[in-house]
Write a protein that binds this DNA or RNA. Structure first.
Lengths: 190, 190
DNA sequence: CTGATATCGAATATCATGTCTGCTAACGGA
DNA sequence: TCCGTTAGCAGACATGATATTCGATATCAG
């Protein structure tokens, strides 16, 4: 039985090449204009090799877990700061740092799958935090579902706007704006 | 010189058939699974005829102005009610009425172009209204650009969530929630 | 009625996807 | 270092959708 954690070195190389090719092509020409041919040309691998590992272009993207891990890491990082329901500051900083890539992946001309992935993580996080603080939020009758969706979508919208407009304000300012705009949901109207 | 406003009756018929085919196919199988072949089969027109009028499937969608007109109409309708910055109630009602179509066009598995079109109209509307009330909003330092984007995206998010979840609350309730959630931007913190 | 033009439909070129083949090269355990 | 196993290769091939072309025909407006 082969060790499943460390596959053949050739496999690792192939996947690494494909991931690199995918990332550079996303930045270069946008995800939906990428063809399998582009990927195997850039990665310099055979056609059948691609299909030996992935079924489609989307399959490759989804298997590219780097992003999801990054998101979770940065989200957990700010969770120690118990103030905010959703780790907005860490996200502005993280997306700002890798703005070329995220710019190509979310918002105008971006990739639906990725946007949905980020949204779903934000939503999950917000739902969890809101439920944890349920008793502190008796001041509103709006269902948690709605409030969590609102918080997640608002943040995603601000992040997208920020990237699409070449980050005209520092992450800290954006975070402050987000906090103020969502004040109604973040804490009782104190 | 031909009258440009009323083209040949055959042309009108062809375009009408294609628009009808497009709408029914969107509801039936979703936009991205529609092929040009589907469209010309459903509309019962020749292949070359399609390409005589449109370059691509997207071209047909964009030329389908019915939607944009509807949006503007309903937005203008509520503008007489000077309370809200963005015509949320009218939109919840309108989208609820044609929910089968809008459900297929915005949100999960929807059509980017349409979502962006709606967002852009909301954004334009919100920007206009915020600028008109500029002096009444000295209580915040958040740029109008950001606030308008926030209002537009939040509403779109609530609309999408509402449709995706089979409209669990009446339009009036959704509107109230939206008003409360965006209270920070709608009016000075009274 | 007549000249103009929209439509037809069928053939065709193009392009990307996905499958399959036999062959070669690289791997890793013994 | 050897050897059985497995990954990768090149390229042919089938498929399905897009987009163009052209002569014949139907329909239009005046």
């Amino acid at each position: 039985m082969t060790n499943e954690k460390t596959p053949d070195r050739r496999v690792r190389r192939t996947k690494q090449r494909l991931n690199d090719a995918l990332e550079s092509l996303i930045i270069e020409k946008g995800y939906d204009k990428i063809t399998v041919q582009d990927l195997i040309d850039r990665a310099d691998i055979g056609r059948s090799t691609f299909y030996a590992h992935y079924e489609t272009k989307d399959d490759l993207l989804v298997s590219w877990t780097q992003l999801a891990e990054d998101m979770d890491l940065h989200m957990a990082q700010e969770q120690t700061n118990a103030e905010s329901i959703v780790p907005s500051l860490a996200l502005f900083r993280h997306l700002g740092e890798y703005h070329r890539l995220y710019r190509a992946m979310i918002g105008g001309g971006g990739i639906d799958i990725v946007t949905e992935m980020i949204h779903s993580r934000l939503l999950h996080h917000a739902t969890f935090e809101l439920e944890r603080r349920a008793e502190a939020n008796r001041h509103t009758s709006i269902p948690i579902e709605v409030r969590a969706g609102f918080l997640a979508s608002s943040l995603l919208a601000l992040l997208t706007w920020w990237l699409d407009n070449d980050m005209p304000y520092p992450p800290e300012s954006m975070d402050e704006m987000y906090q103020e705009l969502t004040r109604t949901t973040q804490a009782p109207g104190k």
